[in-house]
Design a protein around this nucleic acid. Sequence first.
DNA 1: ACAACTTCGCTAGCGATGCTAGATTCTGAA
DNA 2: TTCAGAATCTAGCATCGCTAGCGAAGTTGT
Lengths: 193, 193
Amino acid sequence: MTIQSRRERERAEREKLIITAARELAETEGWEAVTTRRLAERVEYSQPVLYSHFKGKDAIMAAVAVEGFGELAGELRAARTAARDEAGALEGVGQAYVAFAERRPALYDAMFRRGVDLPFATPQVPPALAASFQELAEAVRPHAGDDDLGLLAETYWAALHGLATLTLGGRLPRELHERRLALLLARFTAGRG
Amino acid sequence: MTIQSRRERERAEREKLIITAARELAETEGWEAVTTRRLAERVEYSQPVLYSHFKGKDAIMAAVAVEGFGELAGELRAARTAARDEAGALEGVGQAYVAFAERRPALYDAMFRRGVDLPFATPQVPPALAASFQELAEAVRPHAGDDDLGLLAETYWAALHGLATLTLGGRLPRELHERRLALLLARFTAGRG
DNA sequence: ACAACTTCGCTAGCGATGCTAGATTCTGAA
DNA sequence: TTCAGAATCTAGCATCGCTAGCGAAGTTGT
């Protein structure tokens, strides 16, 4: 019994090691630098070991993405609860969201840009992802008025996602980002002049 | 003189052929199916000819993207000019934008999702891309109020881009897209209740 | 303690990728 | 007709994700 549990523990540790190594490699050199060979070298095992933990490279990316969802949820929550008022909460969450994408572009890539095929719009959505969305929804709630809260939160999310990805991809000049976000917030905040 | 111009013409035709083949292949099977070998086979030349026209596969994608910008500009303009009033123009352009992404996902991928490294926020921006943005800006203008028109148009664009990509990637359920777009429009339309 | 068996991780290799060097064929002018 | 230069192809490199199959462990039963 103990012997098997020890093995399972070691396996879990190694799996965590793989995920961490993949994430670090992606964050420092981008996902195109994360090859199975380099990853195997990094964790000091041979390539096939990776496939005993994950179905393939995409599954490793998905695991990294799940980690990211947890962190995003935490940062959104911190931003929301630190706000003084309802408008500040919406703004803080928006800023935190884009800042997250800006600070961890590779992580954000795995979470929202690559086709990692995680369950999103289904009941089996990862809890951390649901928590992230919930933070957005709570920030949006005071400004929803008669609109459907979930739909409005999704729309706000989409707008933030658009700002983040277009800025990240060099489509929008970074130095004007704050002003764009301010415009968006003005349009999403209830009770504006 | 004529002999050289004939060669140049043939070269230009072949280049166009390559771009079209790449686009068709991408639209029917996705960009991951567009390999240099398959592309070469499709245009009935060997691989190296591709490299006499384009620096690499990315450059071919960029050329396809430029084609797409032209079509997008046309569709946005058609939607805007067909609208009855100012609110209808904003709505029409928004619908047309997302419909374009929905109808030509591979083309949209090349234009806005892949890192094709085209000049965006610089003076050398492709004319067709500038025209697309101009259409968005014109649709936004009546609703800008005291806000900076360019910035607001960028923000509207980002919101549409977010809706399009998240829906395309399965992050948002497609069947509720129209209602999300309606919410966005309500927040961007001037003179709402 | 030893043999049999299972689990584990490795070496080696497959097919495919983007891209390129060098040989070869074709073209047009002398 | 010969020949230089351009155009094109064949063949190959390094690398990719992934897997078959072997050998060395570790575990279990006698």
